[in-house]
Design a protein around this nucleic acid. Structure first.
Lengths: 202, 202
DNA sequence: TCAGTATTAGGAATATATAACCATTTGATT
DNA sequence: AATCAAATGGTTATATATTCCTAATACTGA
């Protein structure tokens, strides 16, 4: 089938070939697909933003470091969970990574079991994030189909106002609110007020 | 006035007197109240769980370490934001602290400005958490006043079912649902269905 | 210019929710 | 035994929401 992707993909970025080789073998032994990159730029030019998974990232690399790549991804609003691997103890780097949302920051050599556990955690985190993001986008898309006036009415309705109160607030007739309301329910694909209220909370 | 507390309080736990002395001076210079403890046990025996603020915590201490204190507080469901200060670079400790929710892990000597910034961030985080927690408790308390049957009806109502549908589902008359519904709205202190729905989402 | 959409509004019929009365049954507490 | 809360149900009336019809005005894009 065209466009078929593995369910999840682990990106592994490290300038050291032997690390890429051994880690990719380790990860693939669990049945998890991996794609290796030898530099941050290599990753930036070839990763697929729509692919769910996680990023295992070396801290020290020539040109762009792992932390710089983390910053760049944040600038692009690409929130893939990152597990840092570092050959040298560096508390400030670790703090920076974690404060920017890293899943973990592990020193080499590290326990393979722990890495695989973190990897699973990171992948699950990404899947959860993507589900929520998809929901949000769907709602945003529906919201964008509302006319300006409908949006005004929408806001007042989910605040809990009755049609009558909305009519008074906007100084137009009840009948008009009825029309707006039914259009809103239709466009937002809501069955009832509860659904609409839940949508409005995101 | 009896029971008056400073708005926020910074707990400072470090076995080194000179650190307690200089840091408490630094923090108090910003107008922020501080309370010092020379050990984790000293803190555990004397802190006030109802006091909003944050915890600045030394990692290495005799008896109970900072990380052990963090674990103990987690066991007690006491989620005060923690800023770790450490004299020795230790990436595994840093990772452990962050993964357990620490706000930061700073190496001595550190920039005073950064510490004060983190402190403000941590205090704000605690205030936010406490507001949300208070909301949750309020709703939980109201929920606990519902009878079992009312709770059943409540769940179906916030799912978006109409009274009629709830009646059919529970196989009782519409009238009874009317009664339950009005009791529920009264007990939950909700003005309208929207409010009830919002409450149910927490 | 024509077609479509947005915003406005009325009437009428139906469905649903809310409030104010009522009463019965059951089970627990005093 | 008396009392109370919980759950049940009925009647009546009013308020509100939903759906069906209608149509005027204004603005926008083909």
């Amino acid at each position: 089938m065209a466009g078929t992707q593995p369910k999840t993909l682990v990106y592994l970025v490290d300038d050291d070939f032997s690390v890429r080789d051994s880690l990719s073998l380790l990860i693939e032994s669990t049945g998890q697909a991996v794609r290796c990159f030898e530099s941050a730029d290599d990753f930036l030019n070839n990763f697929d933003p729509d692919q769910a998974g996680c990023l295992i990232l070396d801290v020290r690399m020539p040109n762009m470091t792992g932390l710089e790549l983390q910053e760049e991804l944040a600038r692009r609003d690409y929130a893939i969970p990152i597990i840092f691997i570092s050959g040298h103890a560096d508390v400030p780097d670790s703090s920076k990574a974690f404060r920017a949302g890293a899943v973990d920051y592990m020193e080499k050599p590290f326990d393979s079991e722990v890495l695989l556990k973190r990897m699973q955690e990171a992948i699950q985190k990404d899947l959860d994030t993507r589900v929520k993001l998809a929901e949000k986008r769907k709602l945003k898309k529906r919201l964008s189909t509302l006319t300006p006036r409908e949006r005004e009415v929408y806001i007042l309705i989910v605040k809990g106002l009755s049609n009558k109160e909305v009519a008074k607030q906007l100084n137009i007739s009840n009948r008009t609110i009825d029309v707006h309301r039914s259009k809103i329910m239709e466009k937002m694909e809501a069955e009832d007020l509860s659904e609409l209220t839940v949508m409005a909370m995101h």
